[in-house]
Structures are given as structure tokens and as C-alpha cells.
């Protein structure tokens, strides 16, 4: 007699190309295969739909038909390892980097990195923004802030931020950059997840803030990257987005 474990193992193999498991039957046994195909189809369609929801710009760039065929290959090699699907699909960027039919489009992996990061930001923990009055009244030499858990900085080899932006509604003529870009991904006060290109100095300042450095010191670290660095625009946009938080008190 087949154990439950063996039954499930054979069923699992059959979902992705294996033969119909022993013991599977139907009202008309000659239709068992056709009926089993509902399960094969459900898994592939539902996981393709999940990947589609996570990577809409990639789908737009490669087209629905190509995306569907590529998703099948990805799914066969990278099944989810947990029922929490929002955590699935991080490997898609590396998969795109290496997928030989796409070698003429090396920037797709970086676009996928942005799309994955947006999902991470969407589900990141909540954190209370710092009050504007605290920011304006405090001494920048001693004011230590935190960053909202959704804030991510991605240093990308390609101009993926401008490519991503150009594929948003209303931005169809947005100019594409010519070199690598740094993406700032965050979740704002109204739960939108915008993506912006930032300068190396701005990226430096964000990392310094994340490390809990005082505001003046974080701004100075940006100036080390770029003597002309003005921290004001970045601070204003971080403040408006609500991603500057109370820092943990230093002991």
C-alpha cells in the first residue's frame, strides 16, 4: 500500500510534468488525465498571476505571451517555499539576468529588483513619522532620527529607475538615463510606493541616517561624496513621505 507521503510525492511530480500518479481515477477513468490537468493548470496559472502582480513592468516590457512562457520556466525552478506569496519571487531578478533569450535586455534584472523592493516596502512594518516641529526645532548636531522600515536604496548597474518610470501611466515620454542609477524605494503616508532616482551623495546620507548618525553628520557624509551636495531637497521629500522616524535613543 502506498503511504500518504508517497501519494503526495507522486502527485507533486505529476503537477510539473510527471506522469499521472498511480491510483488517480475519475468517474470515467479514461478522463483521469484531463481532470488531473485542472490541478496542473491551477498551479501554473495562479503562480503566474502572482508573479504578474509582482512584476507588472517586466510583463509590459516583454509582452504577455513571453512573460507567460518565461514564468512557466521560472516557476518550475523556483517554486514558493512558503504560503506567504508576497515573500516569493525575489530570485526573478537573477533569473532575468541569466535567462539567455533576454541577453539583449540586460537591464530587466534591475527593473525587477525595483519591482520586488516595491512589494517589500508595501508590506514593511509601520513606524510613526517624526513631527515636523521636532525636525525644525532640534539641533542638527545632535538630532538622531530613524528611517521607516520600508526605505530601501538600490544601486543598479542600469538606468532602471527611468525605465521603470517611463512604464508608469502618464510618463510614456520620460527620458531614459544612459548609465547606472540609484533607486530610492519607500512607502509614503498614503501607502503609495514611489520610486525615485537619487544621487550617490543622497544615497550616502540615507545610509548614514539609517545607521543612526546625527543629522548634521549624515549630511556631511553626503558632502564627502559631492562637495556641492545640498541635503535640503532630500530631507524635505523624506519628511513629506513620512519616512523619517524617531531615532532610538543612544545610550
Amino acid at each position: 500500500m502506498t503511504s500518504h507521503h508517497e501519494t503526495l510525492a507522486a502527485f507533486d511530480r505529476a503537477l510539473t510534468g510527471g506522469p499521472l500518479p498511480k491510483g488517480i481515477t475519475a468517474l470515467d477513468p479514461s478522463e483521469a488525465e484531463q481532470r488531473f490537468n485542472v490541478y496542473r493548470n491551477n498551479m501554473m496559472v495562479s503562480l503566474t498571476e502572482a508573479l504578474n502582480a509582482r512584476y507588472p513592468v517586466i510583463r509590459r516590457l516583454v509582452g504577455d505571451a513571453f512573460f507567460g512562457a518565461m514564468a512557466r520556466v521560472f516557476i518550475e525552478h523556483h517554486k514558493p517555499t512558503s504560503p506567504v506569496l508576497q515573500e516569493w519571487g525575489k530570485e526573478f531578478a537573477i533569473f532575468l539576468d541569466r535567462f539567455s533569450p533576454l541577453k539583449e535586455y540586460p537591464y530587466l534584472g534591475d527593473v525587477a529588483r525595483i519591482e520586488y523592493a516595491r512589494g517589500v516596502a508595501f508590506h514593511a512594518a509601520d513606524a510613526e513619522p517624526i513631527a515636523a516641529s521636532t525636525l525644525t526645532s532640534a539641533n542638527p548636531e545632535t538630532l538622531r532620527m530613524g528611517l521607516h522600515p520600508s526605505v530601501q536604496v538600490l544601486k543598479l548597474r542600469y538606468a532602471a529607475v527611468s525605465i521603470w518610470t517611463r512604464n508608469q501611466p502618464g510618463f510614456e515620454t520620460y527620458p531614459i538615463g544612459h548609465s547606472g542609477e540609484i533607486a530610492l524605494v519607500l512607502r509614503d503616508r498614503i501607502f503609495d510606493v514611489p520610486v525615485a532616482a537619487i544621487s550617490p551623495a543622497e544615497a550616502e546620507m540615507i545610509e548614514a541616517l539609517r545607521m543612526g548618525r546625527p543629522l548634521a553628520s549624515a549630511a556631511a557624509s553626503g558632502s564627502l561624496k559631492d562637495p556641492m551636495f545640498n541635503p535640503q531637497p532630500l530631507l524635505v521629500s523624506l519628511m513629506q513621505a513620512g519616512v523619517l522616524t524617531e531615532g532610538s535613543p543612544k545610550t
Binding site: H4, F11, N42, M43, S46, K79, P80, T81, L85
Partner: peptide, 22 residues
Amino acid sequence: AWSSHGAEYLNDLLPLPYTQET
């Protein structure tokens, strides 16, 4: 139903045989 096997999550509600073991 079942939906995971080994380390894999299959994202569907899959059927099982009804036996004393299951």
C-alpha cells in the same frame, strides 16, 4: 486539502485519499 510538499508550496488546494492513515 494539502498545498505543500517537502519545501515546496504549490498554491492550490489539492485532494487527498480518504483512508484510516490520512
